[in-house]
Computed example of a mutant assay.
Amino acid sequence: MGRPVPSLDDAALDPNQMLGAIRALTEQVPQTRLGVRAVTVEPLERRLLRYRVELDVAHPSWSVIGKVYDNRVDGQRAFDAMRRLWDGGFSARPPAGVRIPQPYRYLTDLRLLLMEDVPGKPLKTLVKRKVAGPAEMRMLAVALGKLHASALAPGVFFGVNDHLAVRCAGRHEALAQAFPDVAPQVRWIAERARELERRQGAAPTAVHGDFHLGQVHVLDDRAWILDLDPLHVGDPAYDVAMVFVMFKQLERKMHAAAYLRSLRDAFIDEYFSQGGYEIAGRIPLHVALIHLKRACKRFRYQDEDGWRDTVRRQIEEGVACMEQMDATPVLRSAWDVAALYDECPATV
């Protein structure tokens, strides 16, 4: 399930045409200033390319990642978001082991964002291989905490209505009309979320917007946060909810509950080590909105067997999570947060 991969401009795949663009980056990368001799192009997954650069030096070890966007506006927005964090000194501030890739340049005509090729492996891959441990989960939590604490230029708060318009692509009402048996539940999730947002509020922070274990590369004691395209000012509980949903998906697919629970507990212990339990109290709200988002996405693409039944289950689980907003007591410990995780379903 997912949106189609954007088409690639032939120039982005042509080493000779990309040579000039890569040479233009050398002022930003000191080790490349002796000159660029040649470029080779390596297509990666989905919308990513790797440009391997041969330098006029003894150790030609530079490479650049290119990310292709659906349209020029989306690519410019992603580049601007990365530049705000980079120029604001995100990578230099403590903890220094948590960084983002350096954004080099956005080539508007090609819809191509050029950035640093960071080392390490996606944390999701390490978890699937069962080689990640509590230390890596604590690093994940530290990385998310640093992002949430980072200074970001003031912007309009990305709230529930934005979630419905952008992440649900404005399809929640069409979804309700197409599924009359769950239409009241779809509308209740949306309206209840608006009501809770008005009543509870949330201290705005920088929010990744699509944070999960695949968005963080780790190597030793260092971590890099990737895919900052949806970066915005909003409720940090959404990012934590995304992590919870991914843990539940991995539990279902890996059949390694004890292992994954140990990782989950390490993440919770570290992220909430300084308190912030009011954030945890809003997690069920955002898990419900994630279920609604994914139901709308399945309704949009209709490219999976049994997608109608899956949509209904996602709406049911969204309702169950939203009901936890009234049932959840005041959270005072990491133990309470782990118990909340167990009460909020995400089986599809």
Rank of each mutant, 00 (worst) to 15 (best):
R171I: 04
R199V: 05
F157S: 09
G97C: 09
K130A: 04
A280C: 08
A38R: 11
D336P: 00
V287A: 08
G89Q: 04
V319W: 13
R3G: 02
G133A: 10
P236S: 08
M322S: 06
A256F: 09
V5F: 14
I290Y: 10
A151R: 11
R252D: 03
R313D: 07
V118D: 06
H255G: 05
L164F: 12
R194Q: 11
L34N: 12
L114A: 08
V53C: 05
A12C: 04
I189K: 12
A149G: 07
L144W: 05
M115V: 00
F247V: 05
R111M: 07
A223M: 03
Q76E: 14
H217K: 12
R332T: 04
S262H: 15
L113A: 05
D220C: 08
Y51M: 04
M139T: 11
F299C: 03
F211M: 12
K121V: 03
L44V: 01
P180Y: 14
D220T: 10
A237F: 08
Y104D: 04
R282S: 09
P94L: 11
L226Y: 13
T26V: 06
P101F: 15
E27R: 13
L8I: 01
P94D: 15
I65M: 14
D87S: 09
F211L: 13
R52P: 00
R111F: 11
I279S: 11
G145P: 00
D70E: 15
L213A: 07
I290L: 08
E270V: 02
L140I: 03
D336K: 07
L55A: 04
C168E: 10
M137F: 15
R199Y: 12
V207P: 01
L110H: 10
K297M: 11
A135K: 13
I225K: 04
Q17P: 00
L25Y: 13
V233I: 12
R264L: 14
A327V: 01
P184Q: 12
A12R: 02
P43N: 09
L289T: 04
A38D: 11
E323K: 13
P43Q: 07
A346T: 01
V142C: 02
F157Y: 15
R294C: 01
L34E: 14
V311G: 06
L8W: 14
G145F: 12
R261E: 14
G75W: 14
D74C: 05
D162C: 04
W188G: 02
P101M: 14
H163W: 15
Q324K: 11
Y277H: 12
R52N: 12
R261S: 07
Q76P: 00
V118P: 00
A12H: 09
A241H: 03
I100A: 07
G133L: 03
L55K: 04
T26S: 11
I100P: 01
D87P: 00
R199T: 08
A295I: 03
G120C: 06
Q324V: 01
G214A: 09
S333V: 00
L8M: 09
P119W: 15
L260N: 07
Y69M: 05
R37Y: 13
G35R: 10
L231V: 07
L19S: 07
V39G: 02
D305M: 05
V319A: 11
R313N: 07
P95I: 06
P345N: 08
R33V: 03
H255L: 10
L48S: 10
A24M: 01
T32M: 14
V118F: 11
